[in-house]
Design a protein around this nucleic acid. Structure first.
Lengths: 236, 236
DNA sequence: AAAATAATGAATGTCGAGAATATGAAGCTG
DNA sequence: CAGCTTCATATTCTCGACATTCATTATTTT
């Protein structure tokens, strides 16, 4: 009987694999906010034992995607508007600084990466004019890559690491919401404006545009109907 | 609001307790940078089974205090000057923003907390004039409380959470170094300058002083010894 | 002798079962 | 009927044992 699902060269443990799967499922929304994560149930779903599952949970709890209360198990972290404002604030701070450093230090390779990401983003944005409801995965991917490319030359692994964590947390909020006003925005113009400022090495302008960009996105988030009872946000 | 909220001690699991102990031991230096963390060895030391130990490890790995390589166990994250520069950069960004927000929004209670922390810090700094080698725990505690109090009114739980993590990572570096020039600094003046600027609601000045404060601390860090290899060879 | 391969020992990662704890229902007291 | 206690059930957490992988040495081959 083989323990490992990935017999090939990938040196990944079951705990790592469970972590990756659960993480994606939580961000995408397969596991709803507030949902209880019972070990016995998850054992059957992911077909692994309790030990690697619990290890994955602990990591997710550290990420802020899962709440862990001693002897009372784990739940998917609930969504609430207050926390998102907070999250967006912290994210903006980090992203601006990383962008500023990136603009100061970026080389040709950085420019090339930004240009390439902007090219794809442009096409995705153009196709988006009438799209309502969920954004296509290709758009999500292009958007993530564009923003990642912009800050990729900041030279600070920790800024990147923190940025990535906050980005993922915010993405869960975005995916859990309906962007009703997506049509009223000119995302293409916003994106190209940021890219142009970055390539022109105008850090102040790029930072201002990024801040506005994040602010607009945040302002337009409208919660979907909660798919789970506990998902109803309550102020505490 | 504290990041590690254990308001009811009876609700502590062994995994939580192992996490807390290991975390402290790593930050303080009891577990040396680069040291391998073998489960069997730790089982005897902390007198618990492998499962809660592994869960604690995964959390610590997520914090950046432990490195985890699939099927090759865990090691205490090594120290290196490059990473510290990086860490200090990210920390400064966060701390400045949190301080600015705190100064804008702080109420009487915040002022009182800052004044109280500054009072204790002043006494600790005064006693420090001729101290060499390790700083006393009482000083560490007062210093941590002063800086925590300054940013405590920023209103962003996530900024605080990130700040706390970075603070702890930096503290490990500070504890692992000899502050030979501790005497050449006027810590009392630095601290009181920051506090005065904060209470005067001069955010720009306070941020500038904090940045200089962190920069000076970073510049003075001198590694104690190349303890890495010794730590590895220390089998039991 | 050097390189490649096989064998050995040690450490890691995983599982199922059992102990500890929480949840909820039933019964008792006032 | 409210409030408290007791008991039963379900879930979490922990442990010891075992399968798997890694690292090192011994053996064979060119």
């Amino acid at each position: 009987m083989t323990y490992y699902a990935f017999d090939d060269a990938s040196r990944q443990t079951l705990a790592d694999s469970a972590y990756a799967q659960l993480r994606r499922d939580i961000i995408v929304g397969t596991r709803a906010p507030g949902e209880r994560l019972r070990i016995e149930k998850l054992k059957k779903i992911y077909e692994i034992g309790p030990t690697p599952l619990r290890e994955a949970m602990q990591k997710l709890a550290q990420d802020g995607l899962v709440n862990s209360e001693g002897n009372r198990g784990f739940t998917v972290a609930p969504l609430n508007a207050n926390e998102f404002q907070d999250l967006n604030l912290a994210r903006t701070v980090i992203e601006k600084e990383a962008l500023r450093l990136s603009i100061e230090q970026g080389d040709n390779l950085w420019e090339a990466r930004v240009v390439a990401a902007a090219y794809i983003m442009g096409k995705e944005d153009a196709m988006l004019s009438e799209a309502l409801g969920d954004l296509p995965d290709s758009w999500e991917k292009a958007n993530a890559e564009l923003h990642a490319s912009l800050v990729s030359a900041c030279g600070s692994d920790w800024l990147i690491k923190i940025r990535t964590g906050l980005h993922d947390l915010c993405e869960r909020y975005r995916r859990a919401s309906v962007n009703q006003k997506i049509g009223s925005r000119n995302l293409q113009a916003e994106h190209s404006g940021i890219v142009e400022a970055a390539l022109a090495r105008d850090a102040d302008k790029a930072c201002a545009l990024i801040e506005a960009h994040f602010g607009l996105t945040a302002a337009m988030l409208v919660p979907k109907e909660p798919t789970h009872k506990e998902a109803v946000s309550q102020t505490e």
